[in-house]
Design a protein around this nucleic acid. Structure first.
Ligand SMILES: [Mn+2]
Ligand SMILES: [Mn+2]
Ligand SMILES: [Mn+2]
Ligand SMILES: [Mn+2]
Lengths: 173, 173
DNA sequence: CTGGAAGAATAGCTGTGGCTATACAAGCGA
DNA sequence: TCGCTTGTATAGCCACAGCTATTCTTCCAG
């Protein structure tokens, strides 16, 4: 239930990663290749992000639909995601047991406080990423598509950098 | 077998997306929210990218290990990915039937031509993404982690922009 | 040359995210 | 009110990515 222990979503991104201390201490030239543990941490974080992607996209989409038309129905969610309705039904059940949403049958789905918080964070992050891509000269169509995937893998640090970049008017300034 | 029909990996990124033609033709203010079909396309592309992530990471890692130490053993792959050895064994079987690698038992795994090509593309893309993040001021640790996830969702257009940005010396120029 | 360590494979489990087909419930128009 | 359309829920399937525990195989050291 709920997204657990992810430094990416914490306010305090400590990110204690043991650095590659014995780098270049060997006599062998050995090519690049970072320390195994460091390497592992990257993959672990990426796998974690992947597990939360869907949840984030769902609550964000639900928030959008509610704001746009006052309600979020399974059929509309399914249409926008490009998946079948039962797929949405199953996922919504998961989101409900995880406490993100509340389902009122035949009356659409609504976000809980937790759900709204996650939606808001996701929405803002999504927007920053998309704006950033546009700011570096990507076309709006491509920016929209790329942002949909990239957003879930952007750490707070990177998000801040994106935000600053956009605020300063992009590369042209 | 092999990665099929993905505009992201084609040399000609046509990307025919029907635009939201009836945007703002209604009388209702209706908030933002892009056209449903356009929205769907983003999610579809993202789902496609997700299915190829693992394959890309594996062949890239295998290439790195071979270059670094002359061989890629299951245990080493498992260690660097942070997963169990049987997980790697199963995935390697898939990669073999898909024609990316060739397994010589107790002698490590080797890339086919197809595998090497994919590894090379992935490696270059990964490097560009990571360099780009560093160029906009992200710390090397965070850049490494974020790039591991972001790389798989970067379209050719965005990759080109990243490359140009890095080549021009980042935001300081 | 042989026994044990290390590498690889297999079996069997879980959870997730898709799908189709089908059944059930609401609600609205005639 | 009745029935049809639409929206939801369920059942049952598949593929994938992870896990532990166990069983081969190799290979090398003594
Ligand atoms: Mn999003
Ligand atoms: Mn997304
Ligand atoms: Mn990579
Ligand atoms: Mn990666």
């Amino acid at each position: 239930m709920a997204i657990q222990a992810n430094p990416w979503l914490r306010k305090t991104p400590e990110l204690k990663i043991e650095m590659n201390l014995d780098e270049n201490l060997d006599s062998e030239p050995e090519s690049s290749l970072v320390d195994p543990n460091t390497h592992m941490e990257s993959f672990r974080q990426t796998r974690h992000n992947r597990r939360t992607e869907l949840i984030e996209d769902y609550v964000e989409l639900i928030a959008d639909l509610i704001e746009d038309g006052g309600e979020a129905r399974q059929v509309d969610i399914a249409q926008r995601l490009g998946v079948a309705q039962p797929t949405v039904a199953k996922m919504l059940k998961r989101l409900a047991t995880d406490g993100y949403i509340q389902q009122r049958r035949y009356r659409g789905v609504f976000l809980t406080d937790i759900g709204m918080q996650l939606a808001e964070r996701s929405r803002e992050r999504h927007h920053i990423v998309e704006s950033f891509l546009c700011a570096i000269g990507i076309s709006v169509e491509t920016a929209r598509i790329d942002a949909e995937g990239i957003e879930h893998h952007v750490s707070p640090e990177t998000l801040e950098a994106f935000k600053r970049f956009v605020a300063r008017g992009g590369s042209s300034l």
